[in-house]
Write a protein that binds this DNA or RNA. Structure first.
Lengths: 234, 234
DNA sequence: ACAAAAGTGTTGAGAGTACACCCATGC
DNA sequence: GCATGGGTGTACTCTCAACACTTTTGT
């Protein structure tokens, strides 16, 4: 890029697009995968739901901007977040050229301190399986994020990021089933997750309302969360 | 993002970063994986090598901007290209805030019409295994692109994109070996690539200087280039 | 006939997949 | 003692990975 900047770059007044970050915030609740949305107050798309986001400050990195947005909306820091994709179709915002760098975050429901309604802007969790119409190209962005999440779930151990610090294997399996949208075999699931060597027993058990108490596990943060892909070439 | 735009958005003069696209252009030649670099004429980093790139026009999409850059540098259109990542550390360009959306492209050597030296700017192919010092954070960007290319190669059939229209299985294996940096077993390679059902025989053979003539293949563009990943969960 | 590259099969090991019953607890 | 969820093992199949020789051509 910069190779072609003219020497008198600062003088040259290029027309610049606006740049925002949008953060797709996933969480699990009520046996469902939810996305945090905010209700727009202003035109365009006033009254419609949208992904939380905002302008990048000139002195912060993209990651910092995304983390700031996440904190503003949920009060949460230090959760799993990764850059998703950058969307920049010329008229995705009808007012002016806006390029948005999308991130997605996985937030354990129990870590959320800052619940919808505490802000001036109305926010709410919506099931990814039943989304309202979204402003701008946000439906496409959420779709993309959901696809990526599913894909990642299949070959990394990122699913823990949606659970509390300690959890049972049934909790974990449930999380995977909700996100992947299919039932998994309990024995195979357990064998595989345990042999992946990414969990450690806490030694505690959790007594639920009924049934046998379940062993509690914790994610080993020194664990390697990736699994080998099936290589096309040997 | 836009949810938080004030109504008087156009009036509000937000400070905007500059946005560029950078294109990491890979090609195979001389049994090596090469990247196209341009020599900077201006400060900063004058005389250093950099990834080709430039500003996004306000009326073109990110993909169009990347494709335009690719065309300007190589004369090539219609090759494999995908968005890589967006780099936006506050001071990656010492002059001002520049956010760059990086793409990478795979260009068959024989399709390049516009060779280095035909332009005002000096361009050259450099081995990814022996890169000169690069301007800005471009070393990091190339590294990231190379990692992604290797990774993609392992679970998709993207390697064809670096070869001419027709090629032999030995050509293809060689390409994989160059990029992955390891030798592959000929029998396993052939079995796997043929059983993936992504090639079709042309019926022609190619006679090289010596040895038995090799069958020529073509990539089936109706093929599904993805291979199942080894799922973490059954 | 020989040099050079193309082409071809088998086997043992490990992972994937499908499948059904006993266990610990609260009520 | 029964309802509820937790926890366990085995057999078959398929894929992976390692390995060496024959075939076709030009000189």
């Amino acid at each position: 890029m910069n190779a072609n900047l003219p020497q008198n770059y600062d003088a040259a007044q290029f027309e610049r697009p606006s740049v925002t970050v949008d953060v797709i915030i996933f969480s699990l609740s009520d046996d469902d995968l939810k996305v945090l949305l905010v209700k727009r107050k202003n035109l365009p798309y006033a009254g419609m739901w949208a992904i939380p986001g905002g302008f990048i400050h000139l002195d912060e990195s993209l990651e910092e901007a995304a983390a700031r947005k996440l904190r503003e909306e949920t009060g949460v820091a230090d959760v799993y977040m990764e850059q998703l994709y950058t969307f920049g179709a010329p008229h995705r915002d009808p007012r002016t050229r806006v390029i948005t760098v999308a991130y997605f975050a996985l937030v354990p429901q129990d870590s959320i301190s800052h619940h919808p309604g505490e802000e001036a802007t109305e926010t709410a969790w919506h099931s990814v399986y039943d989304l309202p119409p979204l402003a701008f190209d946000h439906a496409e962005i959420v779709e993309y994020a959901f696809t990526r999440l599913r894909y990642k779930l299949e070959y990394t151990a990122v699913g823990f990021q949606l659970l509390p610090n300690v959890f049972t294997l049934s909790d974990l399996q449930k999380a995977y089933e909700i996100i992947l949208g299919e039932d998994l075999d309990k024995r195979n699931f357990r064998r595989k997750i345990l042999s992946a060597d990414i969990l450690q027993e806490t030694g505690e058990r959790r007594q639920s309302a009924e049934g046998r108490p379940a062993m509690l596990y914790r994610y080993r943060d020194d664990a390697v969360a990736e699994v080998k892909t099936r290589r096309l070439f040997p």
